[in-house]
Design a protein around this nucleic acid. Structure first.
Lengths: 209, 209
DNA sequence: CGTGATGGATAGTAGCAGTATCCATTAATG
DNA sequence: CATTAATGGATACTGCTACTATCCATCACG
């Protein structure tokens, strides 16, 4: 398969494929002559993964690259790969809340984690986001939402465990890393759109017209 | 309060505040003389809301503007305001999946909605995202995740109902719209970070070292 | 043998979210 | 009251991201 065909099958424009090749998101095709390369199923698959992460998962190209490097290296534990996926979808944040709002929020989050018996490294990317979000909600007088943290955590804990179990059971070892990454990122998109649909449905019933 | 003080209290640089004023995200201060305006609590509050939506909710400035216009107009029903918030966090998507992958996914999503008795308008922004995500998951051989749709929906339905109840009960009528918008957008950030923490915790227990 | 596609390199673009600069005033301070 | 600093408002510039566009020497194919 040459580049035009790869473009046709994937729906990605040729210049964009060239760009991904330049950025090494996509491995080079096999050169059959100095200016002729052939691409295979691997490239098509990879291209689909890239587009899913970029379009659906809103992951920046640079982060996609890091994730793919993780998938391609066999010296990384699954836990490390998951860490990469997490970092990819968690923008690095400069703390914005005032100091004491943040210590209060930190306290609350740490309590939650302790209650749940979660093992979380203190520099986990999602931790800062959670703390900042709690602080922001309080500063916006929305403490009632913060009060839901435990209900949210209950529900989330349940299906996360199911997810992990399903992936480990139904996926061959060499595919697990990819499955976990996809599950982490596209799973979020899935959950988010389901939530919006549920909200719309409830809101329509309650406040339409 | 003049601009320097507003900047100090909010942590937002003066040029950025000027930018928000230009873009009409922030209402102008009350002019006390041709080049002197005074800002109040309203501005501080609004500024906090903007930063929360932008930094935590990852909402583009243009969308924030639409949301705020919604909040400021009293001729919009709550349902319409929620629609705005939803549109603000759902990037408009050019369908990317192949035609038959999309009809299959559409079928599956419609079945789900019917099973759940949800009322969803056919042009709901989240609907396209959900369909495209399902299609993408299948094309990436991750059907097992799609099989979780119902478990996800179960959990989500439950806490969404709780959320809506809490907001309507504990918020005064003129604050409901704002609460709903914040709940929709920052709630998502909250859920997402909780999920990542839960995942990290489970993954650490299972695959660490 | 001529037309069109290809790989590779380099340059250019659009959109977003601010920053920077300037200026004519006005406020604050000594 | 004179000087210094801050302000509102307008306009211009910047850095970043994710592509597009162009060019060219080389191939493939009819």
């Amino acid at each position: 398969m040459r580049i035009a065909e790869l473009s046709r099958q994937s729906g990605v424009p040729v210049p964009t494929i060239k760009y991904y090749l330049r950025e090494a998101l996509l491995p080079p095709g096999e050169l059959t002559s100095p200016n002729q390369a052939s691409y295979g199923e691997v490239h098509l698959r990879r291209l689909r993964l890239i587009r899913a992460l970029v379009d659906l998962g809103q992951v920046p190209i640079a982060r996609v690259k890091e994730i793919l490097e993780g998938l391609d290296s066999d010296s990384m534990t699954l836990h490390e790969q998951i860490g990469r996926a997490h970092r990819a979808i968690t923008p690095t944040r400069t703390p914005t809340a005032t100091t004491d709002a943040r210590t209060a929020a930190t306290q609350q989050v740490n309590d939650l984690i302790a209650r749940r018996d979660w093992t979380v490294e203190p520099d986990a990317p999602a931790l800062t986001t959670l703390i900042e979000t709690v602080a922001a909600l309080r500063s916006l007088d929305q403490d009632h939402l913060v009060a839901f943290l435990d209900s949210y955590a209950d529900a989330i804990e349940k299906f996360t465990a199911l997810e992990v179990a399903a992936v480990t059971e139904r996926t061959s070892p060499d595919q697990i890393a990819e499955s976990v990454v996809i599950g982490t990122i596209l799973g979020e998109t899935l959950i988010s759109s389901l939530r919006l649909l549920a909200q719309e449905s409830i809101s329509a019933a309650r406040w339409r017209g």
